[in-house]
Design a protein around this nucleic acid. Structure first.
Lengths: 344, 344
DNA sequence: TCGCAAAGTGTTAACGTACACGCAAAATAT
DNA sequence: ATATTTTGCGTGTACGTTAACACTTTGCGA
C-alpha cells in the first residue's frame, strides 16, 4: 500500500499525459487500443489503486445516510449511538446521517415512502420498521443506492449486507446457559408476552434453537413448557403462582427483550432460590433486574456495534469501493452481573 | 463537521492571505497581534478544524509502527492479526507495521534496545515481552513517540493508552461462572502450573478477584483449594487422582491460557460428569477441549480487538491528533461451545 | 481541395493544506 | 545619513486526483 504508484508516475512510464492515464483508468473512452494496453499494464505492474484522500479532496462530496428504525426506545437508541460513532469517524469523508423512527400507527407507509424517495446516498434499515410492508423496499433496489439491514434480515432483498445475530444459534446459547447437568429434574418455561411476539421470525428462530439444544443433546430431565401470556390468557401474577407451585428449580427463557415485564414477579420468585433466568438485550429495566440477581444472563445483540458496522459497511462500499460480506454476524455476547460493566 | 470552514475562507473573512492564517493557526509567529486575534476569532466562530485528508495529502508522510510481542504463539498472533487489520484500514494514511517477537533467552535486552532505537513513529508493546526489563521503556519516554500497552499494563509509564482486560474483574467473572447455587457442597481448584505463573501480576489479580467473589457473596459451601503443580511437586496425573478422590462436583479455575496442559486428565475426569472448568484464551488447543466438553467456559481476552484498537489509538493520536483515553478495558467475553463460532 | 467531424492526446485548474520564499515597511544599528 | 535587521504579510508550489477544455491529427464526404 505504501509507496503506491500514482497516475503521474504511470503517465511518465507510459510516456503519455496524466489525462490519458485518467481516461484509461476511468474508461472515459477515446484512447488508442495500444496506449490503453500499455497504461493498464503499467498500472497493474505498479499495483495501482487510487488515493482515496486525493479523490475525496477533489470531488469534495458529502454523503447523506438515511437511517430507518422502528421506534425511539432504548434498544434502537443504542443502535443509533453506534451509527453516530461511525458517522463521527467518517465525518472527515463527508458522512452525515439522518434518522427516522417509524411509528406503527397506519401512517408508516407514507413515512417510509417519503424517506425512500429522498436522495440519500445510502440507507441503514431495521427491516422490522417496515411492519410487514417490506415490498416498499423494491424502490430502493431500483435506485441503485446501497442499503444495509440491521437487527433482522430479509433474504435476497438486494441489501449490501446484513448485520445482526444468528437468532437460531442465540437460542441454542440460551439453552446452554439454562441447562444444568447436576439437576435431576427441573422446569423450563419459554415465556413470551403478546401474541405478536410469536409471529416474529427472530423469536421463532430463537425458540427453535433453544429446543434443538435439548433435543440434540438428548436431555430428558428438563421439563420444557411454552407460555404466551396473552394467548394463554394468564396474567403475570397468575404466571408467578404457576411457577411457585413447582418444587423443582424453575428456569425461564424469554426470547426477546421483554423480561422486564415480569420484574416484580421475578424479584418475588427469586426468594425461593430456585430460579434461573435468561433474557435478551441490555435495556435499562433489564439491567436493573440483572444487577439485583433476578436475571442471570442477558444475551446481548450489540446494537451499538451493529450501528457502527452499518456505517462502516456503507463507507467501505461508497468511498473505498471495496467488497462487503453479505452477512456480518454479531458475536453472541453473554452478559451477567459480573461483566456487564465492561460490556460495549 | 460537514461544510467546515477552510483556511481560505478564514482568510477571505479576515481580509488577509491564507499564508497569514496558516501562520496564526500553526503559531509560526511573525503576525501582528490584532491580525492574530481577528483570525483566531473567525476560526473559532467557524469551528475550524483542519482537513485531515488535505493535510495528509500535502505532507505525504508515512508512519512506521513497531510492534513488540513476547513470542510467536497463537495468542500473540491473534493480536498481530488485529494490528494488521487496523494497518490495512489506515494504509491509505500511510501506516505500516513492523513486528518483533522477543525471545526470553538472554538476548532480549539487545533485541529490545535495537527496536527502541529505531526511528518508528509509534509503538505497540506487550509489556510482558520485556521480561522484567521494563526500565528500558524510559528510552521511549525520552523520544516523545507515542506507545501503547496491550494485554498487561504498567502504571504511569508514559504510555498513550493501555488496552486490555481488568484482570481482577475477570477473576470475579470466572468465579461467577463456576459458582453453583444449587450445589450444597463442591470443590474448587484454582490451578496453576509453573512457579513463574503465580509471580505474574495478572494471574495474581485474577485469583484475587476470583476469591473475592466467594468472600463478598459469603458463599461457604464451595471448598476452595489452590494448586501450583510445579511448586507442589505434583504431576498432572497425580492431580487427576486427587480430583477423582472427591465425590463432590469438582470445579477448576485456571487463571491463564494453560488449561490445555491438563487436556488428557480433563477428558478423563469428564466421564465422572461432575466436572466444570473455566479457563482463559482461545488457543487452538483450548478450543479443542471446549468443543469436546472438557472446558465449559473460556474467558476471552479478545487479543485481535486489542491489536486493532492499539493501531486505532495510534492513528487517532498521530493523524487526527485527538485524545485517547488512558485505559481502554476490553469486554470480559464469556465463550462456550455454543457461541464460539461467532466469536471475534 | 476544402471543410468538418471524430479520434487521440495534452493542459490546466481546482480541492485544502503546508511551507518555502520573497517583498515591503518599519525599526534599529552604524 | 545610509545600512541592516526585524516585523508583517502575500505568493507560489506541491501532494494525487478529477474533469473540463483545447489542441493536433486523421479520415471522409462534398
Amino acid at each position: 500500500m505504501v509507496n503506491r504508484i500514482t497516475i503521474k508516475e504511470i503517465a511518465r512510464k507510459a510516456d503519455v499525459s496524466i489525462g490519458t492515464v485518467d481516461r484509461v483508468l476511468h474508461n472515459r473512452g477515446r484512447v488508442a487500443e495500444a496506449t490503453r494496453d500499455k497504461v493498464l499494464k503499467i498500472a497493474k505492474e505498479g499495483n495501482y489503486s487510487s488515493n482515496v484522500m486525493a479523490r475525496h479532496l477533489k470531488l469534495n462530496k458529502t454523503y447523506r445516510i438515511s437511517v430507518i428504525l422502528p421506534e425511539e426506545n432504548n434498544y434502537w437508541l443504542m443502535l443509533k449511538e453506534g451509527i453516530e460513532e461511525g458517522c463521527a469517524e467518517f465525518a472527515q469523508m463527508g458522512f452525515t446521517a439522518g434518522y427516522c423512527f417509524v411509528s406503527n400507527d397506519g401512517s408508516q407507509a407514507m413515512q417510509l415512502n417519503q424517506i425512500l424517495d429522498s436522495d440519500a446516498d445510502g440507507f441503514i434499515i431495521a427491516p422490522s420498521a417496515f411492519h410487514q410492508q417490506t415490498d416498499l423496499l423494491c424502490k430502493l433496489r431500483e435506485k441503485g443506492k446501497p442499503y444495509v439491514f440491521v437487527d433482522s434480515n430479509i433474504i435476497d432483498a438486494g441489501q449490501l449486507t446484513f448485520i445482526g445475530q444468528d437468532s437460531y444459534r442465540s437460542g441454542v446459547l440460551g439453552a446452554s446457559l439454562l441447562h444444568d447437568k447436576y439437576l435431576s429434574d427441573y422446569e423450563i418455561y419459554i415465556t413470551t408476552f403478546s401474541e405478536s411476539d410469536i409471529k416474529e421470525q427472530i423469536i421463532k428462530n430463537r425458540i427453535e434453537g433453544f429446543r434443538s439444544y435439548f433435543d440434540e443433546n438428548e436431555i430428558k430431565h428438563a421439563n420444557i413448557h411454552e407460555v404466551n401470556l396473552e394467548k394463554d390468557q394468564i396474567t403475570a401474577d397468575d404466571f408467578l403462582n404457576v411457577l411457585l407451585k413447582h418444587e423443582n428449580p424453575v428456569h425461564l427463557f424469554i426470547p426477546n427483550s421483554k423480561t422486564y415485564k415480569l420484574a416484580e414477579q421475578l424479584i418475588q420468585f427469586k426468594e425461593t432460590n430456585r430460579l434461573r433466568v435468561v433474557g435478551y438485550d441490555l435495556l435499562q429495566s433489564n439491567l436493573r433486574l440483572l444487577n439485583c440477581g433476578a436475571i442471570d444472563y442477558l444475551i446481548h445483540q450489540k446494537p451499538k456495534m451493529q450501528g457502527y458496522l452499518g456505517m462502516q459497511s456503507l463507507y467501505k462500499n461508497i468511498v473505498l469501493k471495496t467488497d462487503v460480506p453479505l452477512h456480518q454476524f454479531m458475536p453472541l455476547d453473554i452478559i451477567n452481573k459480573e461483566n456487564v460493566m465492561y460490556c460495549q
